Computed example of a mutant assay.
Amino acid sequence: MRRSQAGGPEAMRGCRRRYWPAVLAMGAAVALAGPELELRVGDFRQGLEGWQAREFNGATTYRLVTLDGEQVLEAEADGAASALFYEADIDPGQTPWLSWRWRVESTFGPATDERRKSGDDYAARIYVVRSGGWAWWRTRALNYVWSSGQPEGARWPSAYAGDNVQLIALDSGADRAGEWVHHVRDLRADWRQAFGEELDSLDGVALMTDADDTGGSARAWYADIRLSGAPPER
């Protein structure tokens, strides 16, 4: 993930400047499961409404495909990096649980040092952002990744953005490549552990498959990205 010029799109990538200063609530499907609220930001069976592309260094190809009999989002990067982001005014007090499924074709190999800029590529990542508005230095992002070399459960600061962006390895290596993996995260607990503060608001969800720093290639699939008031059943 290379740095962009000031005023460019590095807020989505390096997380160094003001994130999404004008936050828009954009068309998420909302459902009530009993008393609990559910925000379906990535129900790709319904298409890509509300998601916007942001290019950093070349373009990752995002497209809807049918895989295992369902429509999902496919991401393919060949020495490139671009993201899809979904801006929304999110209240973690109402929807503190983030869940999704992802699948990768492969990773970049265990020798990849993701703590350095030269290795800052991930076959799959999903992250949440709290904007600092014009006080861009207060922007924070929590970045869940399928790591090539870091062990599952490891957490480290972004090679580009430093401590303001924390990465957490939920999957590691290629042992589960080709399989769907389901994750459920308590955003408030993860945020507290990563930044030592309470999470009172979020301004968006993003996903990215990137391969520009390593000069390699990656392919991944994403499905069922949801925010909910209670942890969903697997």
Rank of each mutant, 00 (worst) to 15 (best):
R103N: 11
L37W: 08
L64H: 02
G42W: 01
P92K: 14
L202A: 03
D213H: 11
R103C: 11
Y86T: 06
R17L: 12
T61M: 12
F56T: 03
V23L: 06
L37I: 07
A77V: 00
R226V: 15
V72H: 03
S99Y: 07
D210K: 08
D120S: 06
Q46F: 09
L48H: 08
R16D: 02
P231W: 02
R17A: 14
G93R: 14
R140Q: 11
A53E: 13
S158M: 04
Q71A: 12
E87A: 08
R185S: 06
E198H: 09
V128Y: 01
V65N: 11
M26R: 14
W51N: 00
N57W: 05
R234N: 01
D163R: 12
E105K: 10
T107V: 12
I126R: 05
I90A: 05
A189H: 03
N143V: 10
Y160A: 13
T107L: 01
L187N: 05
S158V: 10
K117A: 15
A223I: 08
V165Q: 01
E179T: 06
A206V: 00
D121H: 06
D120N: 05
S228N: 02
S172Y: 02
E38V: 15
D210R: 05
E179F: 01
N143C: 08
R18T: 14
G215E: 02
A218V: 01
A220V: 08
A111T: 12
A59N: 10
R185A: 09
E36Y: 07
W191S: 07
D120I: 05
T60M: 09
T61H: 10
P151H: 09
P151C: 10
G93C: 09
R130W: 04
